[in-house]
Simulated scan of single mutants.
Amino acid sequence: MSADSLPPAVLQVLPMLETGGVERGTIEVAEALVRAGFRALVASAGGRLVPELTHLGVEHIGLPLASKDPWVMWRNATKLAQVIREHRIDIVHARSRAPAWSARLAVRRTGARWVTTYHGTYNEGFPLKRRYNAVMASGERVIAISAFIAEHLIERHGTDPARVRIIPRGVDPRRFDPAIVSGERIVKLARAWRIPDDAPVVLLPGRLTRWKGQEVLIEALGRMARRDAVAVLAGDDQGRHGYRARLEVLAERLGLGARVRIVGDCPDMPAALMLADVAVSASIEPEAFGRVVVEAQAMGRPVVVTAHGGALETVSPGETGLLVPPGDAAALATALDQVLSLDEETRAALGARAREAVLARYTTERMCAATLDVYRELL
């Protein structure tokens, strides 16, 4: 094939390919690009998900894009410009701030088209932080992962709404389907996590970090009327060993050591959700979207979610889940007791409504199709 007849190429850039919603979305879009006949490349500092990416036929380019060192970022820009020229990249899509600064320089040097995804609210705790964050609002097209994020970036950065495209995150119904999760997979997790027979399971998926609200859930567990419920915190601590130790101390101090499981990263989240009687998102700061919420709903699980951020778009109170004030352990305890007291018919109806809503609005197929439409706009 001659150079002039090459299919269009999209290069996605992000810090690493370890675990998380940004990483998973990158792989899903790369897979969709390959299926649509594009050339798909991803640049990152590597990680455990690289083999999955390359298995899809996507080229991975290893660069130290997780670094925030200005000199490293400058060198990354030079290397990315070389990649753009060598691979005849048409579009560069940045998904995180440090790589985005390098990528934007590379785009300016090469004339490639420029897309960013605004994934979070990004704190502004020190001077010039807003300027640092603003790179994520600089794309020719800026993808916002929820209406909440679209409003935030327009208000915070003055972004022209004509450049903004709202594309909610998606869940893969090929993976998150209650019908395909075997009892063996569920039993395997129950044994590994030492779940007592007949104990109600309250699952909080998410990396271990304070703003995800694990402390709030532990405190709520101690306030619940159901004294047999077990809380499972499923997520990588990503080196936050001190925070994990703090959670363990809190559970012991409240007399809940035997009822709290901190299990680390869970590679079989569909089975974990089927094991759960209720899934929780207890974030004390607004989630930009809240992917674990729609994953749980796709599995037909009741959800209890803090009422701010993207959750206000994905949960219909009383219809597809329950909403509680952020940081309110007492309200969370009441909601959890309420869900656990539902009869089977009511629980099944709630779960069915939740799954139907997710399949109608929040699938990876819809997310990827909308993202490829953005690429086609620029091509």
Rank of each mutant, 00 (worst) to 15 (best):
R169H: 08
E140H: 11
E248G: 13
A32C: 12
A272T: 03
R291N: 12
E313R: 03
D236E: 12
N123L: 15
M73H: 07
G242C: 06
R39I: 14
L336H: 01
L14S: 08
A103D: 11
E285N: 10
V305F: 04
G21W: 06
L323G: 00
Q214A: 11
I143V: 13
E140T: 04
R291S: 05
I284Y: 04
A3G: 13
A279F: 08
V142N: 09
A231E: 00
V22F: 11
D373Y: 05
E18Q: 14
A272W: 02
P15G: 09
E313P: 04
R35C: 13
L203K: 05
M367K: 06
S96P: 08
T121D: 15
E52M: 12
L17H: 06
D90K: 12
I89P: 07
S138Y: 08
G321N: 05
Y362W: 13
C368I: 10
Y375W: 05
R175Y: 10
F148N: 12
G37H: 10
R207I: 01
E295N: 03
L256W: 07
M367A: 09
R24N: 13
G351L: 03
A234I: 03
E313W: 06
P205Q: 07
D198I: 03
F289P: 00
E18W: 08
A179K: 10
T26N: 13
E59H: 13
S67M: 11
A234H: 03
A333Q: 05
M73C: 11
S102P: 09
A192R: 03
V142Y: 13
D172V: 06
H93R: 10
P51K: 12
R253F: 07
A231F: 00
S146L: 08
G206L: 02
P267T: 03
E295F: 00
W71A: 15
I262H: 09
L80A: 14
Y375V: 02
V187Q: 11
V278Q: 03
L41A: 13
D197E: 11
S44P: 04
G125E: 15
N76Y: 09
G222T: 12
R48W: 11
L33D: 05
A307T: 01
P99Q: 07
T116L: 09
V292K: 02
P7K: 07
A360W: 04
G183L: 02
H308K: 06
L322A: 02
I166W: 06
K212P: 01
K188Q: 10
E18R: 14
H241P: 07
P173T: 10
L332T: 01
R366M: 12
L63Q: 11
R261D: 03
Y122W: 14
Q338H: 08
T364L: 02
A335D: 06
V293H: 01
L53D: 09
N123Q: 15
V29T: 14
G62P: 06
Y375P: 02
T306E: 00
L208K: 00
A360P: 03
R95Y: 06
L208Y: 02
L217C: 04
R376I: 08
T121L: 15
R355A: 05
D268H: 10
A144F: 11
G25D: 07
S102C: 10
E28A: 15
H119V: 11
I91N: 05
V201L: 01
Y132E: 13
Q338S: 12
V83M: 10
I84V: 04
I154A: 13
T364G: 00
I61R: 11
T363W: 00
R104D: 13
